[in-house]
Each structure stands twice: as C-alpha cells, then as structure tokens.
Amino acid sequence: MLKFKHFVFGLVLSVVSLQQVVAEELNIYSHRQPFLIQPFLDAFTQKTGIKTNVLYSSKGLAQRLRAEGKNSPADVVLTVDIGRLYIYRDLNLLAEVKSDKLLENVPSHMRAIDNTWFALSKRSRIIVTAKDRVGPDEIKNIEDLADPKWKGRICSRPGSHVYNRALMASVIAHHGAEKAEEWAVGLVNNFARRPQGNDRAQVKAIYEGVCDVGIINNYYFGKLKFSEDENQRAWTKAMNLTFPNQGTNERGAHVNISGGGVALHSKNKANAVALLEFLSDRASQQLFGEINFEYPVNPRVNPTAELQSWGQFKEDELPIERIAELSRQAQMMIDRVGW
C-alpha cells in the first residue's frame, strides 16, 4: 500500500505544475493554427533568444484566460479576427500597451483606442466567379449579390462564421439594419445550396459547377493557387477575383484583421510587447504576405509581389471596432434570414 501511495503521489506531482517564473520565455494563447505562426515565432526566438510556448485553440481561450485570472501564465494573445480581440478587451483581459514603435507601425484605425490591441495583418473579403460563366464586370459590389439575377448561383459558408458575420456587420454599418436585412434575404434567396464548408470549399464548388459565385477571404485564393495539390491549383485558374465596392463613390472592400494584445496579468510584459513590436515590423509584415497571403498593416511595408499582382484595391475604412460592436446584431440577422 505504501508503494501505491508513492506512485499516486508521484503521479500527482507529475501532472500539477509548480509554477516558476522563467524570465526568457513567452507564453502565447493563439487562435491561429500553430503551423501558421511557428515561422514568426522561430524568427523571434532567433532574434531575441526568447523561447515561446504556444497554446492553440479556435474557441474558448478568452474564457480560459478569465477563469485563470491573475494566476494565468499567458503573456500574449493572438487572434484572427476583430470580434475575438474585442471580446478580450470587453472582458478586461488585455493590458494597455505603451509602445511608440507599435503606434508608429499600426495606423490608428487598426488598433484599440485605449491601445489594448493592435492589428497585425489585414485580409479582404472578396468575390470569386467562374471565368467561363460570369463576365469580369458582372459583379461590382457586395450589394449586387442580392440581385435576383443570381438566383441559384451563389455559394457561401454558413453566415454564423466570423468572417461572414463581420461582413454582415459592415453592411449594417453602411446601410442601416433594415436595408441590410433586405440584402441578406436577397443573398440567401440566391444560394445554390445550403451554406456549408469553409472558404476553400466554395471555390471548389464553383469549379465543380455547383454554383458560379462565391465569397471568400483573399488568402484562400493564394493558398489554393500555390497548393501542393494540382487539383486545387486548377480551381483558381478557372476563377476571376473581384475586390468589391471599388467604384469612385464606393466605400471599398470589407477588411478584417488578425491581431494581438498583451494579457492583463502577464508577468512578462516587456517581452510580450517586444513580440507584438516584432510582428508589426517590416520582416514579419512581409512574412504575413509570404506565408499566408495577408496584407501588411504597417503603411511603410508593401504587399508582396504576388498580392500586388491581384490588383490594387481600396479598403473600407470603417473603424474596425464598429464591426465588433455590431456583431450581435449581425448574428441575429443571420439567424433570422437563415444564412
């Protein structure tokens, strides 16, 4: 029995942590998949000697951070849309950051008013169309998607996905709730099939002839174009890509961001800020484009040559926080129209 007790004691010790503060380590809660952020973190470690530890989850990290309270080991939070960043701030989980470098690298409409979070990259929601079935200028604006002429020809992922919810919020912001809901009803009436799959699946469906028009985030186009899978490369060859709302009086294409902030109870704030600064600097900003076909937020950095070859575009300059504020209203609208 004594041995058994020792065994149990050993086991317990091996599974709970005796927390020690290790100065040169940085703990990151990430909503971005490990295989996408690792190249950035490796470069950071190489430059600074600071080791990084990552916890990835697509959902629930804000709840974890909140439950852990001041005992939380987290130093940095990284997310892939404005909605989540906003939730962290709303729950008062982020520390105010004082960094001239970040203020310089990240334009003011791309960061929180109180400097609790900073955008690190931009992605645009774009329209893809089948080359052989849709003329290059047939769709100009996101509003055109509600035109009955597209009945049975549009594919979309479910409306309640963050990317579509943010798009819905941007339409509400520009047209008001009533007009926005009319648009959403029109859009849903035009669907070729029940909303399903991710953005990648919409491109595939167009290629397969299930529909002619889809809404995707721009980086999916790049990932498919340079995929290891030759089928996926073939899909993009059959597509035209349209940045919506580009006319002279138009507002520009809807953009969303990936971003980050410093955890309120981080014991390592200086290094946490150093990581955010690193991610907003030239080398990382370019890496966002090279690895994941995202646009830089840093105005002094140009998009990669590949991104430039897709064309210049005007972005919707609605303050990005407005999208997050309208999220609940957008979700309710999505529920009502059955997107």
């Binding site: 709970v16 005796l18 439950a67």
Partner: peptide, 20 residues
C-alpha cells in the same frame, strides 16, 4: 480549476493549464 487555484494560491501549486 480557476476557483481551486485561487484557493490554493498560498501553495504555489497550480492546477489549470496542467495535465491535472
């Protein structure tokens, strides 16, 4: 676990974020 950690804060043992 968050509550337990608050309670155990004098021990320097943490449960959340561990295999426990």
């Amino acid at each position: 676990l968050g509550a337990a950690d608050q309670f155990l804060s004098w021990t320097n043992i943490y449960l959340s974020g561990t295999l426990f």
